[in-house]
């Protein structure tokens, strides 16, 4: 199981790294821009008269603050998920040890 997971993780890493080292498709204006922004631009280009009728209540004041908040989001998630997985692993190891102790004392 451990080996399976390591292999899967290696494939994930490969899929993330490959786009960064492979040559970019030709005609790309801005490499690695977000699809959400591209979607927005496609709307504006095709419908130059469209005006967004609502603005975000608050915007991160700079790219740094934005990346701070994205990092915070990922960190909160990882902290909780890591806590959960670590807790259960510890518990199942403790159960296994307790079982072995009982078996040994039989």
């Amino acid at each position: 199981m451990k080996r399976t997971n390591l292999v899967l993780l290696a494939i994930v890493l490969l899929l993330v790294i490959l786009p960064l080292v492979l040559p970019l498709p030709g005609g790309l204006k801005k490499p690695f821009s977000g699809t959400d922004n591209q979607g927005q631009n496609a709307i504006v280009t095709a419908n130059p008269d469209y005006r967004p009728w609502f603005e975000p209540l608050w915007k991160p004041p700079s790219a740094e603050i934005e990346s701070l908040l994205f990092a915070l989001q990922a960190a909160l998630g990882s902290g909780l998920l890591g806590y959960y997985l670590g807790l259960r692993r510890g518990q199942s190891q403790a159960r296994r040890q307790a079982r072995n102790r009982v078996d040994a004392s039989d």
């Binding site: 490959l18 786009p19 492979l22 690695f32 821009s33 977000g34 699809t35 989001q73 990922a74 998630g77």
Partner: peptide
């Protein structure tokens, strides 16, 4: 929470 925070590169040259 984690997965939707991580913008990943794709082979199309977009994220």
């Amino acid at each position: 929470f984690i997965l939707s925070a991580l913008k990943l590169p794709s082979v199309t040259g977009s994220c």
